[in-house]
Design a protein around this nucleic acid. Structure first.
Lengths: 334, 334
DNA sequence: TTGTACGCGTTATCAG
DNA sequence: CTGATAACGCGTACAA
């Protein structure tokens, strides 16, 4: 069933049918009705391939989600799709797991699909080098910073991870904690590095030492990671009274393990998370954490990308405010 | 940059370039190398539209995800994409929120994209009527049953919700509970109905009464839903010693609210969840729940769909085993 | 082994 | 207002 068949059945030319289907004004009402009747009867729709081939107007984006374990990314994804719905763009979603390299995958996907732009949800800037430099379309990294890349194509929107981290660490210190452990990512990750620096600044300002070897434990950003990291951390340094973690998932994994080891949170050990996931507010104890505003991240990320695509705007690195949530997982000492 | 430009640059015909790019054997190694060199140099890829228009071979599927709040769906999505990767199919992912009607949306999407098949993640059979009956391509509902529809096109793969529900309820009863409350979905949902029936069977077999008005509370399948439902339920019926919930998210919402009201889980009130999310095993207390095997659901769902598409197999309604997880959220009475 | 030319389903231009 | 026809980029039969 093609436009040709419709035309034949209507007794008119294909050009006319095309005009009707594309809402061109220069068609008589009579003809328009006749054509529409036949079209509806068959439930006919234009072939998208031929249409795009002709009009040469690719309007597709790609959304690359890195690890769906975090519900922050899910909310982001849902919001993006909602915002995209009324726009003349199609977005293709690709889910990567935590171990996949988003740069490599994005490059492959780019050459397969040739999208007008790429949205990264939860990826990190340091993976967007190498191969990905061959990709010359605008992209935006949502929830992580990418300014350090200095790329001509990559924008980003995120909270100020340094400040948020500083704030969180300072909160622990202000509550009387001095022996603080950290559960974070690997130092190869830019995100981890920047959060770690924010943490360190708070420690330094308070005149506190931090022994990296003894008090830092790297792990994956997951429940399991937090769980394993906690055990190692406590073995290395049994004196800590508080733990700064770089994600709510890690914080929860750590809490669970503490509970299993017979320690109470926050009575015995305090914990702060990061992300502000919904579960943070429903966990027992409620997590003290940094909340990232998904709504705003999605909105800004999309605007930036469309601006780059439509107006060839230069890359932009936007910082949106974070919110500190004082839960129940930190105890005031003394 | 088209195949024509490449041909010109190579000094050969477009047919030759096409053959090289499609791995046809009848090209001399010398020519092949020459062409590949130019192709690589420009990072050239064939225009997907033209290719598909020509070969007329649509190989695209649509995955419709209903509400990403549940991490079960996220794991499913991730696995599906992994399994699809090596196959000659493209899948388009659409995320719906909990209030969208999956049948209506699927119908719209079908006419826009004309996929070869549709995968529903977490939708429910009762929404797949009406408009959706016009959609005459195979589809598969993953994680909910659709046998009752008797559709010629819709398959499903899920656990036996009736049996799982029965098992879970019986576990509460075997632990001495007789005054049991239920937090579930609305009775308009087929899934809720079937789980409720399983629950009732266990009650009846044990000779226990269930007063629907007093002991059932409907809510959304979310943390917030569980929280609100718990409050209402306890107000209606303060005597209950255990609560059967239809999702882990509801269970967690209820736990949190109980804690806030000064009740301990499971010391004061026991709770069972449903789904077996990762968080269930990291919550405090660990949730007693029914685990659905995401890996198997994804695998089976995809096989069934591809079988329907490629071999025109009849719809099939597969039941996979569930796993009961005895957590820490149920107390043995007496 | 390689080149040529037609057609896939559309849209847009140009006559009528 | 409507009809005919040339592209769009590619695959492939057919010819060379």
């Amino acid at each position: 069933m093609t436009i040709k068949d419709i035309a034949k059945e209507c007794g008119c030319a294909i050009g006319t049918v095309s005009r009707v289907l594309n809402n061109h004004p220069d068609v008589s009402d009579k003809t328009r009705e006749k054509v529409m009747a036949v079209v509806e009867k068959h439930g006919f729709v234009l072939n998208a391939n031929a249409k795009q081939l002709k009009s040469q107007e690719r309007k597709n984006l790609v959304i690359i989600v890195k690890g769906t374990s975090s519900t922050l990314l899910n909310s982001l994804l849902e919001m993006l799709q909602k915002k995209l719905e009324p726009l003349p763009y199609n977005a293709n979603v690709v889910i990567l797991d935590e171990h996949d390299n988003e740069g490599v995958n994005a490059t492959r996907i780019y050459f397969e699909q040739k999208p007008l732009g790429i949205i990264f949800l939860g990826g990190s800037a340091d993976k967007l080098t190498g191969d990905f430099e061959k990709v010359h379309v605008p992209s935006v990294l949502i929830s992580n910073q990418a300014d350090s890349l200095g790329s001509q194509y990559i924008s980003s929107v995120s909270i100020d991870n340094f400040e948020a981290s500083f704030f969180s660490a300072k909160y622990l210190i202000d509550n009387g904690h001095t022996k603080i452990g950290v559960i974070g990512g690997s130092m190869e990750s830019g995100l981890t590095t920047i959060r770690y620096k924010g943490f360190l600044k708070a420690m330094n300002e308070a005149g506190l030492d931090f022994d990296f070897e003894k008090s830092y434990q790297a792990s994956s950003f997951s429940f399991e990671g937090g769980q394993e990291a906690l055990e190692k951390l406590l073995k290395k340094n049994p004196e800590i009274t508080a733990i700064y973690t770089m994600s709510d998932a890690m914080a929860i994994g750590a809490c669970r393990k503490l509970e299993d080891m017979g320690h109470k949170v926050p009575q015995d050990i305090s914990i702060v998370g990061f992300d502000g996931l919904a579960i943070a507010n429903f966990y027992c104890p409620r997590l003290t954490t940094i909340k990232q505003n998904a709504q705003e991240l999605a909105q800004e990320g999309l605007s930036i990308l469309l601006d780059s695509i439509e107006n060839k705007a230069s890359p932009c690195h936007k910082i949106i405010p974070f919110e500190f949530i004082a839960g129940e997982s930190v105890k005031k000492l003394r």
